[in-house]
Structures are given as C-alpha cells and as structure tokens.
C-alpha cells in the first residue's frame, strides 16, 4: 500500500509504517502462494475457507464505506450481491460469457444501480433510511421471485466452470482475493481522502457538514455507489462458484445482517475493522461447526460473541483498541 497522503500535504503522524508494510506484504504473499501447495491437508477446505473469508472481507469492507464512514446503515446491501450474481450468471447462461470476465461489469452495473437507489433512499435519514433499504431488498426479492425468465423462485442452473476438478477452487480463490484486497484498498484510499473526511463529517452531523460546504446528498450517493461495486463483483464470482442462481441464496436479509455484524465486531468506520470482523466471525463459525457439528449452535455462539464484543469493545475491536491507544501498528490503517 502507498504511504498515507493527506490532502493538505501535511505529513501524517509518524508511524511504524515500514514494518507494518512488511508484515502485511508477507500475509498477502502467503495468501497468494497458498493454492500452489496442493499437498496441504484439507486443501479444498482451506481454499473454500479462503474464498468465503475474502468474499466477506470484500463485502463488509464495501458496506463500511456507507455504513461506517458515512454512518448510514444499509440492510439491503445484498441486493447488489444478488444482482451482480444474476447479471454475470445470465450473461453466462444466455451469452456464454465467463463470469470472471463479467464480474467487473456486474460491479459497474451495481455502481450505477447504487446511484439510482441512492437518489431514492437518501431522501430518508436515520432509522427511516434503514427501513428504506429493507424495503429496497424486499422489492428486489419480489421482482426476482416472479421473473420467470430467470427461473423465478426456483432459480436457474449455470454451466459448470470449465476447469479440471482438482483445480476448480483456484480461480475463485484468486478472484475473491483480488476483490478483498481491492475493496480494502478502496476503503483505505477513501479514508485518507478529502472525500473520506467529508463522509466522516456528515456521519457526525449532517447540517454542520452542509454548512461547511459539503453537498451531502452527492457524497452519500457516491459512498453508496462505491460501496456497491465490490459487493456486485463478489456476487458474480460467488454465483459462479455455486453454479446456481436462486433468490434465497442472495436476497435474504441475513446476508446484509452479516455485513453489519462483521463491521460492528471489527469496528465500524475503521479501515481494518471489517477485515478483523470478518476473520473473527468466520473463525468462530467454523470452530463451532467443527466442535458442535452443523447443529446451528454456531448461531448461538455468534450471538454470544457479539454480546461480548459490544460489552467490552463498544466501538468494535479495532475502534475500541484505538480509542485506548492499544491498537497494534499492524492494524492501524486509518
């Protein structure tokens, strides 16, 4: 990552930036190298875990742009996930284009949709905004449930990926890794930009932000649209990895709730928070499945973890550690 730049050209507070860069670089290299070790025990499981983890990092990090930086909680963000998935999936089914190529297109389409939805939903503030995003989700769900061309509520099958079966997870792994890195980098750049400063300002007080000269509506819509991009991209990749499109995979509110949970656990409005939150929640989930089996006890465990975090880390893990000056430099990306 590049050194933090400040719009005023004022040097950022001195930090142990070089060692942080080295550690993060090593982590990234390990993630890149992982698929080459076919001899790993549970190779496919590890890769699948990577796919899921990177996907949630990308989604939560994207959600955080509008839900964290701008302070507008969206509970309908998975509409972009589903629409990205459907767009790429349908292009594969009807035109034969690979979702790996059209995922970016799906992202751009979601970006444009984000502008459109933002124009409507940002007429509301606070709780009314949250409800308007739920309404958006419900409307999109009804639309896809009844659109027979895409199979309605039964869904539609996609052709399987044309890769040898022993390598089948590798392209998905890298696609999700690129999305995760891209979305975190996007969040990082926003956090260090004037745009990010403006979002933080309007999250604190919209009237004050307006008086300071921010066209808050435009900022919010831009944040919403940018936060839709990578959600659309990973939706396309995820749909292809399942080879199946069905509304209940994408358009259930639990998907959006998961983004919110991960962001809150990690630290809403911080750059590293969504990454930490995604790792914690997925680790807890996997662990409880391993320990208790697929007994849905994992949901209980998740609830307990969330309670614990809210009790002891009211600003999320990263946010609270930073508040107390105990955030390790390695996680200080703001």
């Amino acid at each position: 990552m590049t050194a933090p730049t400040d719009t005023t050209g004022v040097p950022a507070r001195p930090r142990r930036r070089s060692s942080r860069g080295v550690v993060l670089g090593v982590v990234l290299l390990v993630a890149i190298a992982l698929p080459f070790f076919r001899g790993l025990p549970a190779y496919n499981y590890v890769l699948q875990l990577g796919i899921v983890l990177f996907m949630w990092i990308a989604m939560t990090s994207s959600w955080n742009i509008v839900g964290g930086f701008a302070g507008y909680i969206s509970l309908g963000h998975n509409v972009f996930y589903g629409i990205g998935g459907y767009l790429s999936g349908l292009l594969l089914v009807y035109a034969g284009w690979s979702p790996f190529a059209t995922a970016v297109l799906a992202g751009l389409f979601c970006l444009a949709l984000g502008v459109g939805f933002g124009l409507v939903t940002f007429r509301a503030h606070g709780p009314a905004f949250i409800i308007s995003t739920i309404a958006l989700l419900l409307m999109v769900t009804i639309f896809f449930d009844n659109w027979e061309f895409v199979g309605g509520s039964n869904g539609i099958s996609m052709p399987l990926p044309p890769f040898p079966v022993e390598w089948i997870k590798v392209p998905f792994y890298y696609a999700m890794l690129v999305s995760a890195v891209g979305s975190v980098y996007l969040a990082y750049r926003i956090a260090h930009s004037k745009f990010g400063l403006g979002l933080r300002a309007l999250a604190q007080d919209e009237t004050k932000a307006e008086v300071a000269g921010i066209d808050t509506r435009r900022f919010k819509i831009a944040a919403f649209a940018l936060s839709a991009f990578f959600v659309g991209v990973v939706g396309a990749v995820w749909a292809y990895s399942l080879s199946y499109l069905r509304p209940t995979i994408f358009f259930i509110i639990g998907v959006a709730a998961n983004m919110v949970l991960m962001a809150i656990i990690g630290g809403r409005g911080t750059v590293a928070g969504p990454v930490v939150g995604a790792i914690v929640l997925i680790a807890v989930n996997e662990l409880s499945v391993v320990l208790f089996g697929a007994s849905e006890l994992n949901i209980v465990v998740t609830g307990v973890i969330l309670l614990g975090v809210l009790l002891f880390f009211p600003l999320g893990i990263v946010g609270t550690l930073r508040e107390h000056g105990k955030l390790p430099a390695i996680l200080d990306w703001d």
């Binding site: 719009t7 004022v10 400063l197 933080r200 300002a201 604190q204």
Partner: peptide, 12 residues
C-alpha cells in the same frame, strides 16, 4: 466536529 482533531476541523 467534536470527534475530529483541530486540524481536521480546520480542513473542514
């Protein structure tokens, strides 16, 4: 903006 630093407020 009470949660921002003096400098960030000036930048605002």
């Amino acid at each position: 903006f009470p949660e921002m630093t003096v400098q960030e407020n000036l930048r605002m």
